[in-house]
Design a protein around this nucleic acid. Structure first.
Lengths: 264, 264
DNA sequence: CGCTGACTTGAACAAAATCAAGGCTCGTGG
DNA sequence: CCACGAGCCTTGATTTTGTTCAAGTCAGCG
């Protein structure tokens, strides 16, 4: 897997992750006729797209973060994914040719743009391009299924620990500290995503802090004992198994968060 | 959406759903050099493939039923999907070039076979083929996310009702009665899939029977009042809303079960 | 006939939700 | 600069839901 997927001239040289983008313009608000300006800035609360919007592009997160939600008939919102730099966004649109999700930015962010035309051209031309897109979608599906499993098999403490660890892993891959997290989402978002009450999130964070696993100060979370957090997630029944499972260190780590990044 | 996806000569004319298959043979046990025998019979308990197996084909369920499972490090099994005739199986393999699921048949069943070579050829050649495969995968993802939402927002009664309704819908599309269900899976499978204890399943089925919503006799389930079952799923907070939501009849029905069939 | 696996039912228990109240921060306007 | 308000977050008490434990029942089968 190289970084050349979706590569066509001209490339988007401004991408933070050396992601190569195509397309000069589109009705989506991207500046026209400028081969370099294939990314666009959004602010906190802005939507990249909403459920029902026409599906005419895929996006790659360039910087910042976002949440992807689905909505039920009674307007209840469910966050299904948090997006970070490098993540591919928009594959929810292939099903109905319109988007099923609403993607909302959690902070000032920028995304790169790949028109469907480009995607189609790539798929027609490149075996590797096909593999990458299909692999990415398959990955997203499996991840979501593991998420389902975690709801059935894990306690709320374990789910929250897995969430923090996964956040750490994903941000580390993007060059940030693996211990020091700055949550861009509210407790409400976390609770929604993990399927718990916001009070439970609050209590569990306090508990974990009292046990010396983490340190919490508002949106700043420091992971103090990553190994213990990991063993907490792995052993499902017996606390005494902690030592046994400790050697599994990292072998089974639920990918609790959104889409796979395009590279890797 | 026509039924001609994956069509290449020679076609598999024996397919129950007029599904067109390609490929004469493969190492997978399909009979060699016979263009018609592109399907194979399996029996209850057989695996179509296991987690970690090489990914070299997609499959279409021809008759019978199956369950797809993922497994955690501690060998805990989680059913992520039930498969029925017409369903596309195997897209979990695109992520790692090997299967993430284990697919096990619940009864005597037959599946059609599409080699990866054929899939690739199709994707390279046909815009429509691409749209169908990507659409199918996108659908599976969205369905799985709705499943996630149902865990967070619905009570266990609602989840079970949604499960029965979806079973009914899927089997109706395959030409069977929409009221009379024959469950091919055990209570244990249902409990695993819905993330509940098997005792809870048993109790809820009894309750629903006492309320006149269904009739249960071992694996035979009759849906006696589909409308009330639907409103049960739709109204999340207040039982009095039943009348209001009744007019939504079918508007929001969680697709609680596996992959979309290939045709519509 | 007696075993086995699938299913049911009841009673006690635990985990997390809900209800209720208050505290902390930050932004806004006087 | 300070007061005020809104949203976000925390904490405690109570309640609900569904699990777990325990004890059967039922049907099919060697």
């Amino acid at each position: 897997m190289t970084q050349t997927q979706f590569k066509q001239s001209p490339t988007c040289e401004h991408c933070a992750l050396s992601r190569n983008c195509t397309e000069k313009t589109e009705s989506n608000g991207f500046t026209a006729n400028n081969p370099v300006l294939t990314h666009k800035i959004y602010h906190k609360g802005d939507n990249l797209y909403g459920a029902g919007d026409a599906f005419n592009a895929l996006y790659i997160m360039r910087s910042g973060s976002a949440k992807a939600c689905i909505t039920s008939v009674d307007a209840q919102e469910q966050i299904v994914e948090f997006c970070f730099p490098g993540d591919l966004i928009g594959i929810d649109g292939f099903a109905q040719r319109q988007h099923a999700h609403t993607v909302t930015f959690l902070e000032t962010s920028s995304v790169c743009y790949i028109s469907l035309t480009s995607v189609n051209a790539l798929l027609a031309q490149s075996e590797m391009g096909r593999q990458q897109l299909l692999g990415n979608m398959s990955n997203s599906l499996i991840h979501q299924q593991q998420q389902t499993m975690s709801f059935h098999c894990m306690t709320s403490t374990q789910r929250l620990a897995a969430f923090l660890l996964d956040l750490s892993t994903r941000l580390t891959h993007r060059g940030l500290s693996s211990h020091q997290l700055t949550l861009s989402m509210t407790r409400i978002d976390i609770a929604n995503y993990l399927g718990m009450a916001i009070e439970t999130i609050s209590r569990l964070l306090t508990n974990m802090q009292q046990q010396g696993l983490i340190h919490v100060q508002r949106r700043q979370v420091t992971l103090l004992d990553i190994n213990q957090l990991r063993s907490l997630c792995n052993n499902l029944a017996d606390a005494d198994n902690a030592l046994i499972f400790a050697q599994n260190n990292g072998a089974f780590q639920l990918s609790s968060l959104g889409a796979q990044p395009l590279l890797q």
